[in-house]
């Protein structure tokens, strides 16, 4: 009985404290981060949007996408992103990885199928298809592909856009990020920015 009463009294004190925390941590803190973030770097705070000419914008109406979010590419003459299982592909409203395990028959079948398809599309042997071309990313929104996968696509994109392989390869190099500080993360190619560069040169 005495313990129950103590629990009740402590809960009341806890309730008053929670009210205060809700205001300070739940409203003031996010608002302060928003205000400071928007003052220092509004472009990042709003989602790193880019226009068709590759310029930064904060207006979704002007944007063709976010520089850090992948998107589906319909045009067969452009660089293709990784497979995605987020909704119908690159859907931010239903982000998802396949969550299939390493022995999953479904995953094994899908890898085989994708490998054949990619090899056929690029006109290369199946052994040349890199892992990121046949696996879905964790987020389903991966903005990048590996340097190997980008280079695999260069001849096809060059032919489709009426550019030389050398020109397109140069664009791939321009849009490749190395490891940060030489050790963090992996070398990668941003697909949206690369495609924008290709279209700008092709026009």
């Amino acid at each position: 009985m005495k313990d129950l009463y103590a629990l009740f009294r402590q809960s009341l004190a806890g309730l008053r404290l929670m009210m205060l925390f809700t205001v300070v941590l739940g409203l003031l803190y996010p608002a302060a981060v928003w205000a400071a973030g928007s003052a220092v770097s509004p472009w990042h705070a709003r989602g790193s949007l880019v226009t068709a000419s590759g310029e930064r914008t904060n207006d979704p109406e002007e944007a063709v996408g976010s520089a850090i979010i992948g998107q589906l590419v319909e045009d067969p003459g452009l660089f293709q992103p990784r497979p995605s299982v987020a909704g119908a592909g690159y859907d931010l409203l239903s982000t998802y990885g396949s969550n299939l395990g390493p022995e999953s028959p479904e995953l094994i079948a899908s890898i085989k199928e994708l490998r054949t398809a990619v090899a056929e599309r690029e006109g290369v042997d199946e052994s040349q298809v890199p892992p990121d071309a046949v696996t879905a990313s964790g987020s389903g929104l991966d903005p990048d592909i590996s340097v190997e996968y980008a280079e695999l696509q260069v001849p096809r994109v060059a032919a489709a856009q009426g550019l030389t392989v050398g020109q397109v390869q140069e664009l791939v190099d321009d849009n490749t990020s190395g490891r940060t500080l030489g050790v963090l993360g992996e070398p990668r190619v941003n697909v949206l920015l690369l495609n924008l560069a290709v279209l700008a040169l092709g026009d």
Partner: peptide
């Protein structure tokens, strides 16, 4: 060719 299912390239 590598355990990239469910992982991000970056």
């Amino acid at each position: 060719g590598g355990a990239m299912e469910g992982k991000e390239v970056r």
